[in-house]
């Protein structure tokens, strides 16, 4: 048992020593700085916040082809930040800036529907993460000058599971 763990450690060490990462980048004409990356669970999709014409908006790219995928139904007039994807990329959660107010929204790519999720109280979302199955959110919230992380359930979401994963 111990030698198996040691063997795995050795293999990982060797692999990491070889990993001086030479990365893959997705640039495009008209795209400025890219920030806030997130990946779908299977790593097929990459979402970033890209600057286009001075506006910060989410950009969804398929890794294998480098093609940008359309996101019809999103509100492009307001700045976006902190995107997060579920396992297959069905759900794209991010923070939308409406003037002075920030709000959490989840875009269901299967239904092309944008769903605002208001927070109770005077709390402002700063960053978020969606669970692989899309049924839970972890949100960094600003409230009275303090930043807290809180968990929320999304009971009405159909789960976005990896192939073969059991329903819980």
């Amino acid at each position: 048992m111990i030698w198996q763990v040691r063997c795995k450690q050795f293999l990982l060490l060797t692999s990491f020593c070889l990993l001086n990462a030479c990365g893959q980048r997705f640039e495009a004409p008209g795209i400025g700085d890219q920030q806030d990356p997130a990946l779908s669970g299977n790593g097929r999709l990459l979402v970033t916040v890209a600057e286009r014409s001075g506006r910060r908006a989410v950009r969804l790219v398929e890794r294998s082809t480098g093609n940008e995928l359309p996101l019809k139904g999103l509100n492009w007039g307001m700045p976006h930040r902190s995107p997060s994807l579920s396992w297959n990329g069905r759900y794209l959660a991010f923070i939308l800036q409406r003037g002075e107010r920030s709000e959490i929204v989840v875009f269901d790519r299967a239904l092309a529907r944008l769903r605002p999720l208001p927070l109770p109280g005077e709390r402002s979302p700063q960053a978020l993460t969606i669970s692989p199955d899309g049924k839970r959110l972890g949100v960094q919230l600003l409230h009275r000058g303090q930043l807290d992380v809180e968990l929320f359930n999304l009971p009405s979401h159909e789960p976005d599971l990896p192939p073969g994963a059991p329903l819980q």
């Binding site: 990462a21 990365g23 997705f26 700085d33």
Partner: peptide, 19 residues
């Protein structure tokens, strides 16, 4: 891995395959 990296005053996002 997707990494936000600063190079030459610009933010880039880079993808790295892990072993």
């Amino acid at each position: 891995l997707a990494v936000q990296v600063s190079r030459g005053g610009r933010w880039q996002v880079e993808l790295l395959d892990l072993p």
